[in-house]
Design a protein around this nucleic acid. Structure first.
Lengths: 209, 209
DNA sequence: TACTGTTTAAAACGATCGTTTAAAACAGGA
DNA sequence: TCCTGTTTTAAACGATCGTTTTAAACAGTA
């Protein structure tokens, strides 16, 4: 087994288990058992559990933010004053096409769950890591949203955006449970595409109002 | 020190620490140290850590749901067909006036954070406990929301409600992180009451559209 | 005061955690 | 083939966890 294999298998397993259970509830022994590598491999290749957590986020967040940056560049190149739908459309498109989570079938669900963990379970080190590495893209995205609605105060924009993020993160990270509940409630299944089709006007209505 | 004192002090400390750190990140030794009681007192009075977690939720959720039930009774007694604002208003009012978290200064913040934990960190036992004890009030509340908009399909109502729940839960469980981000972003702090004041019209706009 | 059941106290239990160690296995070039 | 640096392995480390044990302190009653 090559080094790349071991590192990748650890990242894959950690990604799945973190998304499923959270950070503290996932032990290195769970990760290395699922990855079929030796326990010490984590500390050898990554240094510590904290570094592994950061590596898991870096692996999918770096290409995601790069893709988002490119798309935002393309957007402002073709449209000096993009409106809310334009900016949100870029985000949705990047999420649907630019997320690569190796070895996981339901990529979007894992992506959202990890994103949710970044908010709800972020210890100091992870919050610092994310801010240092991805705050630039994040701030830029927020800025475009703000520019689309210059009549709103910074505070209003901030909280509306994060209410919307909350709806996204919660829905997508519990999508399996919610679909089961929807079947029990309405008698019919709701495909992911239908859920997203309903969520986008929901978010737009809540943001624009 | 009387038994009631010991039990109450454990509940107070556990409540604070759970809200602050989550369940797994809070050890019984942290709790008993802060409560200034012996370590074994938790297992003596509550049985286990899981039972303590449930007791913490029961202490504030039972009076909260009783209050909410009463308010909902009063609402339908005075208004056979309450609209969305009425129902959401009852919820907001109950949250603002009917929450008693002993020994904590910022009660609403702790309440929100615990509610968020109930969704994001609930392992099997807590989810089961909450469903068994509080699902009736919860279902009733959802029903009134649905009745307020009979023109919408069950599916539409279902997903809108859960998008809204997502915005609430996410905001509640990440409130400290978000307030920090808001300070970094806007330069000013946003009090919890202000966040709620902004969230309610957000939810109403998103639900009614 | 002596007795009884309840509560608190200190100490230890076994399990699990992240991490480290030291040796074995491996790979590639001289 | 031998050497060298890298990677994997098995085992152990110290720390911390939830829980249990056993005895001491306490409160109420007769």
């Amino acid at each position: 087994m090559s080094q790349a294999d071991t590192v990748t298998r650890i990242l894959d397993s950690a990604e799945q288990l973190f998304a499923e259970k959270g950070f503290s509830e996932t032990s290195l022994r769970m990760i290395t058992t699922r990855a079929k590598v030796n326990l010490a491999a984590v500390n050898y290749h990554f240094g510590s559990k904290k570094d592994l957590i950061q590596a898991v986020f870096a692996r999918f967040l770096t290409p995601f933010c790069n893709k988002l940056d490119k798309e935002l560049n393309a957007l402002v190149a073709s449209n000096q004053q993009p409106n809310l739908h334009d900016v949100l459309g870029v985000l949705a498109n990047t999420m649907l096409t630019g997320v690569h989570l190796t070895g996981n079938a339901n990529k979007l669900s894992v992506f959202m769950r990890l994103l949710g963990l970044a908010y709800t379970q972020a210890q100091g080190h992870l919050r610092r890591f994310l801010r240092e590495n991805y705050n630039e893209t994040y701030s830029r995205f927020i800025l475009y949203l703000r520019n689309a609605h210059p009549e709103l105060s910074q505070r209003e924009i901030f909280w509306r955006i994060h209410f919307a993020i909350g709806a996204c993160v919660f829905t997508m990270s519990s999508i399996e449970v919610l679909r089961d509940m929807a079947i029990a409630d309405t008698g019919e299944d709701s495909g992911i595409d239908e859920v997203m089709r309903q969520m986008i006007p929901f978010l737009a209505a809540a943001l624009e109002r």
